[in-house]
Design a binder for these strands. Structure first.
Length: 546
RNA sequence: GGCCCCAUGGUCAAGCGGUUAAGACACCACCCUUUCACGGUGGUAACAUGGGUUCGAGUCCCGUUGGGGUCACCA
């Protein structure tokens, strides 16, 4: 059989150049010794998974820490899953988390194009080469054909797939091939696998350590019937020509590693290093599973933006899962930027971590507590601009007022910063009582109405806006005493039954009356911020509601 | 089901042949405190299981069990 002729018949791409051309076009990168070239290679589905950020962070850190390159490649070989504007989503999502690419799709770079669909010519050149060498062949099997053999294999407990005796098109005669071609039958190009599943090798995975890989014996599809490569083929070609040195990817790829190893070998390419990291999991009923795009809102990166999680918080949490010694480092050097941490691929966990939003929240609170009031103002405002309702947007009309609110709620100026704010959404809800437009209290006192009324009215009669905190509190105590409440905590603790309550209960009533809440920062300051008029109005409103 | 990966408290995890088995989150108690928080102190809680190897095993080996991943013209 004339394989050169066959190759031309099968892949009539006029743009194909001799193989040397590509090797010179994409030369070895000139980088310092030890520098790693890594990448993120998402599909443009319009959905960015937490796992995308997770793996991006690992690749980014390793590349930049080693003086290498981190680039973005778009794996758009699946027409069905492609979504308009998806690349924009990829960029904006990662930009929010400050993950920076050195080159790649929609950026500069000498190793492009970075969209796989635009690289057809290269794939075709190499597919042709394999056909010419007799290492790839056309397959005319229909979906039904494949389904049938799969059924047979399953019934007979055989390894499923297209291989060996089941690879019907492997040994098609020249006449049969050209007859099929003439009949216009659609075809794919398959690799003629030289592997043997009985043969196993030890492979060094950068995160898992030494693992066992079985040789591939599947005649995998390398070019689909539309001439577009499958992931496997594109991966081998692209990571070779983009000169990737290290591939950190999810462990769901581990099982196709044998295919990739064979492909690199068959193409004559040097295999990059691989590290397969575990996916983030979640408890679902009795068992755990991968965070699911469909079932778990927190699987989506947009979730964190909508909730207004600070990007550093999410990144920090990802880092604690990514590198086991990161948290300790962070606790030791709370003021150092993330980038100063020495990321180590060897410290990546071998087993999948459960996503723990409580832990994220804790980290979030700590990060939020490092912001200044103006930084917080800007952060909340930008969240509100994108996701807030009209009322929340209006909070920013009076900047000075908002800054006073934030200063109080963040505990700035106090001995220790407060850690009430978890994310922008929650923070905005937490401060809504400062704004009459959203102030809709549900008064729930732990004392009977008469008692509350007496106390509120008693306080109102003595409250003077200009009082300092000490004077103010003396008045609270006086009101408490008038109703028989204890002001001496020691006396109260000694015999709680001797009093209807203590001064903290009185403070609670006043707090509920002015804010509608049990938990708020210092009440005196709240009243100072609200202003005299509004404070009285709130007390009146509370009394009227009794 | 075949193949591969994994296995220390509820969660993330340190440990890499000899430790009273760290630390963080969560939880509980107490302290601080006019309130709410923050903070501080202490506490509950773990080496899946059975065999080996060894003077000695969470650590090495094998089996079992459990969990996860994967078996496409999807990535």
């Amino acid at each position: 059989m004339d394989l050169n002729k066959l190759a031309d018949a099968l892949i009539p791409d006029e743009n194909v150049k001799p193989l040397d051309y590509y090797e010179t076009l994409f030369p070895e990168r000139d980088l310092p010794k030890g520098a790693q070239v890594t990448r993120l290679a998402p599909s443009p589905t319009g959905f960015m998974h937490l796992g995308n950020l997770y793996v991006a962070l690992a690749n980014e850190r390793i590349a930049h820490q080693s003086g290498g390159v981190f680039y973005l490649r778009i794996e758009d070989t699946d027409e069905k899953r492609k979504v308009e504007g998806a690349v924009e989503v990829i960029h904006s999502s990662l930009k929010y988390f400050d993950v920076i690419f050195d080159e790649g799709a929609d950026l500069c770079g000498n190793y492009g194009p970075y969209y796989q669909r635009q690289r057809a010519e290269i794939y075709h050149a190499y597919a042709k080469e394999l056909i010419k060498k007799g290492l790839a062949y056309p397959c005319f099997c229909t979906e039904e054909d494949l389904e049938k053999t799969r059924e047979y294999q399953t019934e007979n407990k055989l390894l499923p797939g297209y291989y060996g005796e089941f690879a019907k098109c492997r040994n098609l005669s020249e006449e049969e091939i050209y007859a099929n071609l003439a009949a216009g039958k659609p075809y794919v190009i398959r690799l003629k696998s030289q592997g043997d599943v009985e043969v196993k090798h030890t492979f060094h995975d950068e995160v898992k350590g030494d693992i066992t890989v079985t040789e591939n014996n599947q005649d995998v599809v390398i070019l689909k019937s539309d001439g577009i490569p499958t992931y496997h083929f594109a991966h081998a070609i692209d990571d070779h020509f983009m000169r990737t040195t290290l591939v950190i990817r999810g462990e769901e790829w581990l099982s196709s590693l044998p295919i990739h190893i064979e492909l690199f070998k068959t193409l004559g390419f040097h295999l990059p290093k691989y590290g397969h990291n575990c996916s983030i999991q979640k408890v679902d009923g009795e068992t755990r599973r991968k965070l699911s795009k469909r079932k778990d809102p927190e699987a989506s990166l947009t979730f964190y933006r909508e909730q207004g999680y600070h990007p550093t918080a999410v990144k920090t949490y990802m880092m604690t899962l990514l590198n086991s010694n990161f948290e300790e480092w962070m606790l030791k050097f709370p003021d150092k930027p993330l980038d100063e941490f020495k990321y180590s691929i060897g410290k990546m966990g071998k087993s999948g971590a459960l996503f723990d939003i409580l832990k994220l929240n804790d980290i979030s609170k700590t990060i939020m507590a490092t912001l200044s009031e103006t930084e917080m103002y800007d952060f909340l405002k930008s969240w509100a601009d994108d996701f807030g309702n009209e009322a929340q947007k209006s909070y920013f009309a009076d900047k000075d007022y908002m800054l006073r609110v934030l200063t109080l709620c963040m505990g700035i100026g106090g001995k220790k910063r407060r850690k009430d704010f978890v994310c922008a959404k929650q923070a905005m809800e937490m401060i809504d009582y400062f704004f009459d437009s959203t102030f809709a209290p549900v008064y729930e006192y732990r004392f009977d109405k008469e008692t509350v009324k007496t106390i509120l009215q008693g306080f109102k009669a003595t409250y003077v806006y200009a009082d300092d905190m000490q004077t103010w509190f003396e008045k609270v105590k006086a009101v408490a005493t008038a109703s028989g409440f204890a002001t001496d905590m020691k006396a109260y603790k000694a015999d709680p039954t001797a009093f209807p309550g203590n001064v903290s209960d009185v403070a609670e009533m006043l707090r509920i009356a002015t804010t509608g809440l049990y938990n708020t920062p210092d009440l005196w300051t709240i009243m100072q911020i609200l202003g005299e008029e509004r404070t009285f109005a709130r007390l009146d409103k509370a009394v009227a509601a009794l």
